Structures are given as structure tokens and as C-alpha cells.
Simulated scan of single mutants.
Amino acid sequence: MFLEPIDFASMYREHKATTDFKGKTNTDWDEKSKDMAASVINSPYVNDFISHMKLTGDEVVLDIGCGPGTLAVPLAKLVKEVIAIDFSAQMLEELKAYAAREGVTNIKTYHIGWEDDWSHLPPIDIVVASRSMEVSDIDAALAKMSGHASKACYLTYKVGGSFVDMNILDYIGKKVKTKPDYWYIPILLYSKGYLPRVDYIETGRGSVRAGNEEEFVESLIWSVHELNDEQKVKAREYYRDVIVGQNHPPRAVNWAFISWECAQ
């Protein structure tokens, strides 16, 4: 593929280990579950994701990092069964409540994550990982997805190396080491003999919430883990002068939609 071999799997692991954008714990997501459920359910992103999938209606779908059922519940209306897994117990409770409201009964939930044993899961046709690929070893995660899918895999991964608009970080003086970008994924899949397809989902909204000044600052802290007092002052200034004063909301997030066939 290249003049000299390049170990992209190791490169990703090293890059991921140094980034300031660290993965959240199950406790973090437990606390975020109710707020997240309200903000992501029935979003345009869901229709965009599902529209990129090839479905016949008789599939069993594994949803990794299912969250509050953002994809699991709409997918369950289109397929035979959804197996929904998440390492946040509270996210699974939100999913069950959402499914009950929608009258959906063909979802099975498992309180497990990427690092757990999946051998007890039933046979799977399609595996999806929607905005849940913040793993330390992307090569192992992709292998795990491919190994459990008899037909195809679909995932989304953030475009760009920051969950926060870099204009905001530059303004408040927050220096960050960016995270790995999505191009590791198609390269690693191609090296394993797959022919991945890459498309994009444009959300039209930023990952940092900016409904009001407090929400903006709290959302920034959630994304970058911490801000010092001076950075908090600058963040409030940015909200007032740029977001409100110039009517310039945070830059919209785009997601790479990556798919590959796994015929066995």
C-alpha cells in the first residue's frame, strides 16, 4: 500500500493516548443520560444514519454504545431485533423508557462495553457504532465489529481532531492536543481486506451547547475536562461577544459515516 510499511494501529494508539480529549467513564455517562436523551432522540442525524444503511427488515442489529436508544429504537421499527449494549446502566434505563413510549418490544439490552466479553450475544447480522468509537485501540474495536457481523458494519466518527470549535479554544487560550481523525479507520479496514465506503453526516449544530452562558461554559468543561478561572472568564466573554453579539454559533460538527461489508 505504501513504499514502506506504516503501523497505523500503533500510530492511532499513541495518538489517542496523548490527546486531551479523553473518553468518559460510565459514571460520567450515567449522570449525562437524562440530558442526553432529551437532546439526541429524534434528531435529523438519526434519519441520516439509517438512510445510509442497507436493510431488508429481517436483520438482527447490534448497537454498540447505544446510549438512550437514539438509533436502537428507530432501528427496531425496521428490523427483526436490536441488541443494544452500553457500559452506562442509566443510559440503558433511558433506552427502555424510550422504547416503552414508542411501543417497541424487540430490543434486548446488555450492560457491557467495548472491553467486555461479547461471546454470549446472539448471532448478529449488522453492527452499528454511532458516535461511540472513542476507544484506546481502534484496530481492536474494528476487528470486534467485523467479527460479530455476518453482513455489514456501520459507524460514525467525528471529523477533525477536536470536539470543540478550535476558534473557541484559541480565543479562551486553551491549548489542546487533538485526537486522532477518522482517516485511520478506512486505512485500517482496507489493510484487512475490506473496501470501506466513506460518506458524511452534517449535523448543522456544534458539539458545545450554547443555549445560554452557563450552559456554554459547562458544555466546554464537559468537552475539555477543565478550564482555569481565566479561561472561564474568556469563555463567558466569547459567548457574549461572539455567539450572541455577532450571532456566530459554534462551528457545526460533521461525522464521517464509514461502512463495510462482512459477508462470511
Rank of each mutant, 00 (worst) to 15 (best):
S162C: 08
Y194D: 12
Y184C: 07
K177M: 02
Y200G: 02
S191H: 14
I124M: 04
S146P: 00
S146L: 03
K177S: 07
N167W: 02
I124H: 00
V135L: 04
L189V: 12
W183M: 06
Y157E: 10
Y200T: 14
S191K: 15
D139I: 05
D137T: 09
S132G: 12
K144Q: 06
S146F: 03
P123K: 06
P180K: 00
G161I: 07
T178C: 00
N167Y: 06
M133P: 05
S191G: 09
F163W: 11
I187F: 10
S136L: 12
L195G: 05
K175D: 09
K174Y: 11
Y200P: 01
L155M: 15
K177H: 07
W183T: 11
T203W: 08
A143I: 01
I187M: 14
P186V: 11
I172E: 01
D139W: 05
K151S: 13
V135H: 05
I138Y: 09
D125E: 10
L195H: 14
K158F: 03
F163Y: 08
E134N: 11
Y194S: 13
D125A: 04
V128Y: 04
P196N: 08
T203I: 00
S132I: 10
A129H: 11
G173V: 06
D170W: 00
P186L: 12
A152P: 02
L189P: 06
Y200D: 03
L155T: 06
T156V: 04
V159W: 01
K179N: 01
I172T: 00
A152Q: 14
L195M: 12
V135D: 05
M145A: 10
R205T: 11
Y157S: 03
D170T: 14
Y190K: 14
K158R: 11
I168A: 11
I201N: 13
I201M: 15
I201T: 13
K174R: 15
G147Q: 06
E202A: 13
I201K: 08
E202W: 08
L142E: 07
V159D: 08
A149W: 07
A141Q: 07
S130T: 15
K175A: 11
L189Y: 05
I168F: 10
I124N: 01
L188S: 09
V164Q: 02
G193V: 13
I124T: 13
K179S: 09
R205I: 13
I201G: 13
P123L: 00
